[in-house]
Design a protein around this nucleic acid. Structure first.
Lengths: 163, 163
DNA sequence: TACTGATAGTCAGCATACTGATCAATATCG
DNA sequence: CGATATTGATCAGTATGCTGACTATCAGTA
């Protein structure tokens, strides 16, 4: 096939599929949808962010909000609302720290522990589903590359990971 | 080293870094931050979503909102606000379609064209920066794996890609 | 101890994203 | 033709995520 007119303009605009930023958004979009579907099917109403916060609070009892934010790379202004909703659902407790009156200590409740236990299979299932197009080896490689890119860019967002 | 007590509970909770969903969120978070920083340094106030919409409207003059949404995998309810803001900035025009009175035809303005031209280097720079931790080969492999995972999960989100 | 800077948390404001609903217009089929 | 279904767009409501500002508190130092 011979084109009489070369498509100059079109070639100068990169395809979305060549843009890592676009691919990042798409993959995250699917990941969230899968998470909500699996967790919803299991009878729970918990977002990915709420789950990550809940699991991290359980693993680090009594931590404050800034530390929590650092451990899961959230902005501290985002954490406030997430915590509010977890408290609302009686999954965690927020109380003033005796050592630092600015800080709030976070603790998982029994109900939070129960929810976390029951929800775990759905979360693991979701992680599998979002990689279902890849072989096990490819899935591992994708995660390795993501970890590497993230490590190099950690300081570039307002909410870097802090250990 | 001998552990007297096996850490059963802790081991049952997967590390965030083993969760593709968490890695997806982190990578996207960094990608957006880098995009906004680069584009902002270039003197423009445009989000990744607005950029993608603008570029797609330029490449497909006169398309309607649902088609645009499909081409970049947005939810149609999200598009409304994005279009509002692009119109507000005089980068595009939205007018009623003569063929289908439900639909709106979208067209880039001269100012939109100018902005797109001037902003392109910053966008390309952003794509490089978000992969700066990876070799060229690794960057290609990451994009290939993301494309593959996305293709397999396309129908799982409310806003799949439509060609 | 008083001043200064840093820190924990919250808030207002804005921009994605989604669910589910509604309205108007178009398509389809009996 | 007319009833029905579908489609394009919008809206209300909710939940991230961010910027920038603010208060209260704490820490270090002159």
């Amino acid at each position: 096939m011979i084109r009489t007119v070369p498509a100059l303009k079109e070639n100068s605009v990169k395809d979305n599929n060549d843009m890592p930023g676009h691919l990042a958004r798409r993959f995250q979009q699917i990941a969230v949808a899968v998470f909500l579907a699996e967790v919803g099917d299991a009878g729970f109403d918990l977002t990915p962010v709420q789950y990550a916060a809940l699991a991290t609070i359980k693993a680090n009892p009594g931590l404050d909000q800034v530390t929590l934010a650092g451990l899961i790379a959230y902005d501290r202004t985002t954490i406030t609302g997430v915590i509010d909703r977890l408290v609302q659902k009686d999954l965690i407790e927020r109380r003033a720290s005796p050592r630092d009156r600015r800080a709030r200590e976070l603790e998982i409740t029994d109900e939070g522990r129960r929810a976390l236990r029951k929800i775990t299979p759905a979360v693991e299932s979701a992680q599998r589903i979002m990689l279902r197009g890849l072989s096990a080896k490819e899935g591992e490689e994708l995660m390795r590359l993501l970890r590497k890119a993230i490590a190099a860019g950690n300081e570039l967002s307002r909410a870097p990971l802090r250990e």
